[in-house]
Design a protein around this nucleic acid. Sequence first.
DNA 1: CCGCTGCCCTGCAGGC
DNA 2: TGCCTGCAGGGCAGCG
Length: 288
Amino acid sequence: MPELPEVEVVRRGVGAHVLGRPVSRVEVLHPRAVRRHVLGGDDLSARLTGRTFTAACRRGKYLWIEVDGDEALLTHLGMSGQLLVQPPDAPDEKHLRVRFRFADSGTELRFVDQRTFGGLSLDDLVPVGAVHLPKPVAHIAPDPLEPVFEPDRVVERMRSRRTGVKRALLDQSLVSGIGNIYADEALWRAKLHFARPTATLTRPAVRRLFDAVGEVLDEALQQGGTSFDALYVNVNGESGYFDRSLAVYGQADRPCPRCGAPVRRDAFMNRSSYTCPVCQPRPRNGHW
DNA sequence: CCGCTGCCCTGCAGGC
DNA sequence: TGCCTGCAGGGCAGCG
């Protein structure tokens, strides 16, 4: 469940259900789910057994659970990953990849992932600036909901790029947590076309864009994230409701909520971009 | 260093 | 009915 609001919903669920509970058994049911754990599934399992989850943390779309304070079980949900808290007698999900049992014999933590783009690993925590991050997350920029996010600095970095504004929004080393849905929604709110060159944007325009990013992420989080189908759920298997508030994402041919013009879909980066052709005119000659 | 393409997977919808 | 293509919310290696 991919973008920041959905991952944050899962982080809160994990934090509420598995902290302080010693792990009694880890079953790795699909090797691809632990491919980023270099020493393999048996090692992951052995090193977690008997230890206790102490905190649930997140940066951008990465989620990790600190283990006794010095290591972290790092998770990326990829396109279709889920972390579910389930009673031990609940039937195995079709795409169950990793199961964590606890010494109290209560609920299990399950990693379920249809497309196996996501995965788990156990990593050392390293200091990065004012925070500690799992090593593979060290190069990921702060997300807009973190206290260490510095808007002015990110505005300048974005303006110094030589690329289109949507490509920059999706670059997790510039600002993290934004994926295809919230990029399109924020660009619509800021009335910017996805191909607008970052270098042609004024400082106030980029600031307005990041204001829009912050608003759309906050609103989505308040509604439990965006769920188009059963693949995107919280730890209890429940869907979010922000799909009802989407202005343009997935809304091809439906009216723009602001001006009524039909929303258009364009191919972009092997994916799709949705825009209002009136509110977000395509830039011409590298300008607008 | 930076920007960009291709690829890793499974499942579903729609066209033929 | 079944086969094929295109598409899906992500990230990374490797290229120029």
